[in-house]
């Protein structure tokens, strides 16, 4: 309660000082970086699951994009299947950008980004944790976009839907890696809301292109092409993971 004096809680006398030896000692062995990554990502997801703000707004935004665009590609009361890849990826990227901005904006409330950077956790772990959380958010949005697209465009994929899931997951990973670096870099800048998509989208072009091509190939049941683009997408993820790992420490800190 606000009005209470500091040491009034019952246990305060039983455990008088913060120096009670049994608890609170720092572990001597370095805590595994993976555990820290999981802690940061887990924290982000826990916060998100409490409010569901980002998830709901992203999903609704993506759904609106799919509906509005399929509506504009209607011919003879049927939406053009050729428009599916473009519509799906536009929805994912736009909604992803909204989620990315909010996920970092949230770290500004309560100044928790400072708290993260102040902790002895390596910056790599913080960066990776946020990337994982954002990738999972984007995957969640894709779980809304994909069925909606299949529904509105009257597509029946059968087992090939699994290939499409793989494409979408690889796309989400690529988006999260590049997006996290850029969003973290722009964090200190006033006009970051506008600048983020301006600088992010050109870098995402190879990802969006290979994603749409792969989606189109899967819709056309062209396995060879689909796998080619899936590999390209994986290569994109690898290249930018390397660049991100090399640069993020220099970029995020100041």
């Amino acid at each position: 309660m606000p009005g209470r004096a500091l040491p009034t809680a019952p246990a305060a006398d039983a455990v008088p000082a913060s120096c009670s030896a049994a608890v609170g000692r720092r572990t001597t062995a370095p805590v595994g970086t993976l555990r820290l990554v999981a802690a940061v990502a887990g924290k982000d997801l826990k916060v998100e699951l409490r409010s569901r703000e980002i998830l709901y707004t992203m999903a609704l935004f993506a759904a609106v994009i799919v509906v509005v665009f399929s509506f504009s590609f209607v011919k003879d009361q049927k939406a053009l299947v050729a428009a599916v890849p473009g519509v799906a990826w536009a929805a994912v990227v736009f909604a992803g950008t909204i989620g990315l901005g909010r996920a970092f904006e949230r770290e500004r409330e309560g100044d928790t980004m400072r708290a993260l950077l102040l902790s002895p956790a390596p910056r790599l772990a913080i960066f990776a944790g946020k990337t994982v959380a954002i990738a999972l958010l984007v995957v969640a949005v894709e779980a809304v976009v994909l069925p909606l697209c299949l529904l509105f465009f009257n597509v029946d994929l059968g087992a090939a839907v699994l290939d499409l899931v793989l494409v979408l997951v690889l796309g989400a990973i690529g988006f999260a890696i590049v997006g996290t670096v850029f969003a973290a870099m722009l964090l200190r800048i006033q006009s970051r809301d506008v600048l983020l998509p301006v600088v992010l989208y050109p870098i995402l072009v190879p990802m969006i292109m290979s994603g749409t091509k792969a989606t189109a190939a899967i819709l056309a049941a062209n396995d060879a092409d689909a796998w080619f683009w899936i590999k390209f997408l994986a290569a994109y993820d690898c290249v930018f993971t390397i660049v991100a790992l090399w640069t993020f420490e220099a970029l995020v800190i100041e």
Binding site: V178, V181, F182, M185, L186, I189, V199, P202, I203, V205, P206, M209, Y236, V239, F240, V243, T247, A250, L251, E254
Partner: peptide, 17 residues
């Protein structure tokens, strides 16, 4: 440093595009 990062990402992106 931010601008430098942007330029590096942009340059790496050229062959990919």
């Amino acid at each position: 440093p931010l601008c430098a990062g942007l330029a590096i990402f942009g340059m790496v992106n050229v062959p990919l595009v």
